[in-house]
């Protein structure tokens, strides 16, 4: 370098040249503009079930045979119940193959302690993580797009510590991918990149009251995998729930009804709003799982011939599944009739 001027001139040329030719170099490096997210293959999630033993069922539910004050029930049974139910479905090996990346989507919407029933029971989530790990999953991620400050939600719900103890990884949604709606080509969804990148997805909701939709369960739980201005979804909320279930269909759905939030949902905030159905249901058909939870975890509000919330009918209409869970092979213990 002879002079300052020469140095400056050369630097300018080099910078300009690099900037101008960067698309070329980038193409050599194999740039993926994955933010645009064209052609995401979502089907694999429900086509990819592994062969199950012949006695396996497609919907399993279990209720603790506890008489007496429900609040005294020992929730230590949560993990064991989860294990039993997954076992009935044919074991985690039916859903998770060795080397898979698994994304578990519990409800971590609120910064509330587990006893307020605003978030999924941490022991249930922890056990799912443990089972997925045992089935050979390479990486088990757990995340949600929380409604309140995410770190506080992860911590206060105790799901964060439970997942880390079970060998999973808490992740915060950061990147979203544009995905076209399966129903209306003019509509796009922003979907959590972690959710899309995972090989298998498990929706682990908690049974809660919701003023607008009646209840929030495994299908509504998928709102937590959506980015953008989510608050607009309420204007066509039943259709949005059903459409997301169609678009994002999880490999396995579970509704934790050990505790259920009976009113003032979905936040709760007082123990007086919490009921104790002491039940868990899981299955491969989100509509069946939700319908079962509506019948059995809301103290008879959706019992008998009572009309189910509209999102159930919408989901059937969109071909997500069937509300009548008896159409599938099922094993339900502790529910009387």
């Amino acid at each position: 370098m002879k002079s300052r001027r020469e140095f400056l001139r050369k630097s300018l040329w080099l910078t300009g040249g690099a900037a101008f030719t960067s698309p070329f170099w980038a193409s050599l490096l194999g740039v993926k503009r994955y933010r645009r997210g064209g052609g995401v293959r979502l089907e694999r999630r429900w086509d990819a079930l592994n062969p199950a033993p012949p006695e396996a069922v497609d919907l399993a539910a279990l209720r603790l045979p506890v008489a007496g004050p429900a609040a005294a029930a020992d929730f230590a049974a949560a993990a064991e119940m989860t294990r039993t139910i997954i076992e009935a479905l044919g074991g985690m090996g039916r859903f998770v193959s060795p080397g898979d990346t698994v994304y578990v989507k519990p409800n971590i919407g609120w910064a509330r302690r587990p006893e307020y029933a605003a978030t999924t029971n941490p022991d249930v989530v922890g056990e799912i993580v443990r089972l997925a790990k045992a089935a050979g999953a390479r990486d088990v991620q757990v995340g949600d797009r929380s409604c309140e400050e995410p770190r506080k939600c992860y911590e206060e719900s105790r799901i964060g510590p439970a997942v880390e103890a079970a060998g999973g990884r808490m992740v915060f949604p950061r990147e979203y991918v544009r995905v076209r709606s399966p129903l209306d080509p003019a509509r796009e969804w922003l979907v959590d990149a972690n959710y899309l990148a995972a090989d298998k997805v498990i929706s682990a909701a908690i049974a809660k009251h919701h003023a607008l939709t009646g209840a929030t369960l495994a299908m509504k739980n998928l709102f937590g995998a959506v980015g953008g201005e989510r608050s607009r979804l309420h204007q066509r909320v039943h259709e949005s729930i059903a459409e997301l279930a169609l678009l994002l269909r999880p490999t396995l759905c579970l509704v934790d009804g050990l505790r259920a939030l009976a009113s003032n949902g979905p936040q709760g905030g007082s123990l007086s709003y919490v009921e104790h159905p002491l039940a868990i249901v899981a299955g491969v058909d989100p509509v069946a799982v939700d319908a079962f939870a509506l019948r059995h975890m809301f103290g008879g509000r959706y019992g008998g011939s009572a009309a189910l919330p509209r999102f159930v009918a919408r989901a059937e209409e969109y071909g997500v599944g069937f509300a009548d869970w008896t159409r599938a092979k099922s094993r339900c213990e502790g529910f009387g009739g």
Binding site: A211, Q235, P266, G268, G269, Y273
Partner: peptide, 20 residues
């Protein structure tokens, strides 16, 4: 006359200050 009530959903008090 559109459905919304996102505010009610998020209202944290027990019982909720926003009711529908």
């Amino acid at each position: 006359g559109r459905e919304c009530t996102v505010c009610e959903e998020h209202c944290p008090t027990a019982p909720k200050a926003i009711v529908t």
